[in-house]
Computed example of a mutant assay.
Amino acid sequence: MQYHLARWMGAALAAAALCACASLEPVQTAQKMIGSPESAVRGTFGAPTETYQLAGGTSRWIYSKQPLGFDVYAADFDAAGNLVRFRQMLTEKEIYEARPGIWTKHDVAERFGLPREPVQYYPLMKREAWSYRLYVGAYQPAHFSAYFDDRGVLDRTMIIVDPLGGDGHDRSK
């Protein structure tokens, strides 16, 4: 009886460790899963916060850690439902690919997920702002904002560094 209990506990600890690795290093974990079916990705990372159909029968699953976290991950699948790419979306590189005057709210949501911070409207500018938390540089907390005109077209993006840190964690320890 004790042997079976010990074996069960060992299996439970191994499963917990796998989940911990997936949550601590999701990109590294997912890179090892390239080519895996959607069911394997769901089994490792859980249900996505959003899903989007992309061109050519491909799809994207968004895993948002917002508003308290600093990450939004995208899992891209081919038309057969196999993982082809997994990456952190809230990076300066991804943000600089945004196309003001061309992208719409749907394009921004497809790239970064829907905002989890309250949406702001600035009547004097006639702009709606979606805000996301991210790290820039050497783990400097910041806010990324996407501003939309009244037609829902991206007007501009902005990254503002938070000099106070914003999350109460001392990263120097």
Rank of each mutant, 00 (worst) to 15 (best):
Q2A: 12
L5K: 11
R7V: 14
W8D: 13
A11E: 14
L13G: 01
A16N: 09
A16M: 13
A16P: 01
A20D: 06
S23Q: 15
L24P: 01
E25S: 10
Q28F: 09
M33L: 15
S36P: 05
E38Q: 15
A40G: 04
A47V: 12
P48T: 05
T51Y: 00
Q53I: 08
L54T: 10
G57N: 08
Y63E: 02
K65D: 10
D71N: 14
A74T: 06
A74E: 03
A80G: 07
F86P: 00
Q88A: 12
T91F: 08
E94R: 09
I95N: 02
G101I: 00
T104V: 05
K105D: 09
H106P: 00
F112C: 03
F112P: 00
G113V: 07
R116T: 03
P118F: 10
V119T: 14
Q120S: 12
Y121S: 10
M125F: 14
K126E: 11
R127Q: 14
A129W: 11
Y135R: 04
V136Q: 10
G137W: 09
Y139V: 06
P141K: 04
A142G: 07
A146M: 09
F148I: 06
L154E: 04
R156S: 11
P163N: 07
P163M: 06
G166M: 01
G166C: 04
R171V: 02
R171K: 08
K173Q: 11
